[in-house]
């Protein structure tokens, strides 16, 4: 079961590589923010799966921080796109 969870964690990182292509390729900034939001979600899942893989419950708090703050970043950046940050 540990091996399956590790393989799933690796698969999430590989999905992050696919999204990084879109971060580099996206014609507008909105594409990049979309890819970055999805990348944050995938990294959240990867941290959760790595916590189960390494059997440390301490690592789980990192995923909660990541899940709550990445959306804050997305909302702040979309507000920057809409009206300017200052």
């Amino acid at each position: 079961m540990t091996l399956a969870i590790g393989v799933a964690c690796l698969a999430e990182v590989v999905i992050g590589a696919l999204l990084l292509i879109r971060v580099g390729l996206g014609p507008t900034v909105c594409d990049r923010i979309v890819a970055l939001n999805t990348l944050s979600t995938q990294i959240t899942l990867a941290v959760l799966l790595f916590a189960a893989f390494a059997d440390r419950a301490t690592y789980l708090d990192v995923s909660i921080w990541l899940a709550s703050f990445s959306y804050l970043a997305t909302i702040v950046w979309s507000r920057y796109l809409e009206r300017g940050l200052l």
Partner: peptide
């Protein structure tokens, strides 16, 4: 800047 943010996220993992 967006690539820098992606690097920070992956660096956290």
């Amino acid at each position: 800047v967006m690539a820098l943010s992606a690097m920070g996220t992956v660096l956290a993992l």
